[in-house]
Write a protein that binds this DNA or RNA. Structure first.
Lengths: 232, 232
DNA sequence: ACCTGAACACCGTTCAAGT
DNA sequence: ACCTGAACACCGTTCAAGT
């Protein structure tokens, strides 16, 4: 058998090399880039692989599957959320500061929040986040079981609220007349069959008077409800 | 050409006829039966069609697609949710009665609640539901904008809470040792890096002392938070 | 009018084969 | 050790063709 010929000098050109080594981090960031660009529905192992110039099956050497990829993405994002160090005098405002930071960070990744609802995140960064939120709650004077439940309720509210906001924004983006359509739908509800709805149609359909007013309302309700439970 | 032969008497046997006419209602119920049996992930146009002994493409003569099917399923379920007639003296307890009924009805259909988060339902039965919940809120003395926002917040809480409960139950069903795994995971968190979490690990991992205690806590927080906003 | 059959453009995941 | 290529068992949706 003849020895293989040496590679001619121009042969290295066509094989465009991958920009970076395939790692869990690279895969995670490619997944986030995809969600940022096109939303959660577009997230597939095949398209993440495309973004890294590899075959989908190559990803399985680094992550166990789509579920783990989503967990890695959520944990990556969790790192950016700010939680203040506990100050027992200001626990209510501090919970709101955490919630606003979480809303901003999560909201920057389209409807990624939906993945957080479907797939309760438990990565290392998420543990740190929970510990820091628990610290604020523990300084509130709430009973211990209430502290534990509140650490579940508040993130659940944040995630659900951000998810619905982002779905709304995404839909508006893809279908600019969407707002007018649901507006018209509510206004078309006959007052004899839907008396209260008809009476409140302006409040139900009017845009938020300030950005995040609806989110701030939910925050006021929940933090206010917790404050009412503090034993005095 | 020869005339076609008459059908022999035994030929009608093998063509097993469909049990009922294909209608939106039949499709909706087949979808619910599938979700009840196997959960939201198993819901596909092809499998719904299988359950009705038709091809998937046949469904598109009755519903515009999977999104509309989900809307029909949610609206079908909404009909079963009880909302009391408004009594201004009891608005707080009445909101809780609605929430408990919604939890029970939604929770009976596995993780269908997830579809309600992803796909904000707006069918006719849902409109009636919103009108009736708004009626209770309108009798509370809350400001009008707060009434409108609360009619969003409360269902959002219910849906998110039921969704997470059902995902947990579903996971327990498929992986009976799941509870012990997350239990061990939380207990393994080192106290020097997660001091508050380690301190509260019993409260975080212990099962609910009574069924729905976690749901009732969220309900207390939200309804209590709303009560604190009533102008007096 | 309503359903079938085939097709199109996708999925997640596995696994033998290559290098 | 790590990636490719091919395969398996699925998706939602469209559309010409049948009855």
């Amino acid at each position: 058998m003849s020895s293989p010929l040496p590679e001619p000098p121009w042969s290295s050109v066509p094989q465009r090399r991958r920009r970076r080594q395939l790692t869990r981090e690279a895969i995670t960031e490619a997944g986030l880039a995809l969600v940022d660009a096109e939303g959660l529905d577009a997230l597939s192992m095949r398209r993440v692989a495309d973004g890294l110039d590899v075959q989908a099956s190559a990803l399985y050497g680094h992550v166990s599957g789509k579920q783990e990829l989503i967990q890695l993405m959520l944990d990556h994002v969790a790192l950016e959320i700010d939680v203040p160090d506990p100050d027992p005098e200001r626990w209510e405002e501090q919970l709101k500061e955490f919630a606003r930071s979480a809303r901003q960070v999560l909201g920057a990744h389209r409807d990624l929040a939906g993945a957080s609802l479907a797939n309760i995140p438990t990565g290392p960064n998420m543990l740190v986040l929970i510990d820091r939120v628990l610290a604020i709650l523990a300084a509130s004077g709430l009973p211990r079981q209430a502290v534990a439940y509140a650490a579940d309720l508040l993130p659940q509210f944040i995630t659900a609220a951000v998810y619905e906001e982002s779905l709304f924004l995404q839909r508006l983006e893809r279908e600019p007349e969407y707002f007018e359509r649901i507006d018209a739908y509510f206004r078309a509800a006959p007052a004899d069959r839907f008396p209260v709805l008809a009476d409140l149609v302006n409040e139900l359909t009017s845009p938020e008077e300030s950005p995040g007013a609806r989110f701030e309302f939910g925050l006021d309700v929940i933090v206010g409800g917790l404050a009412a439970m503090v034993e005095r």
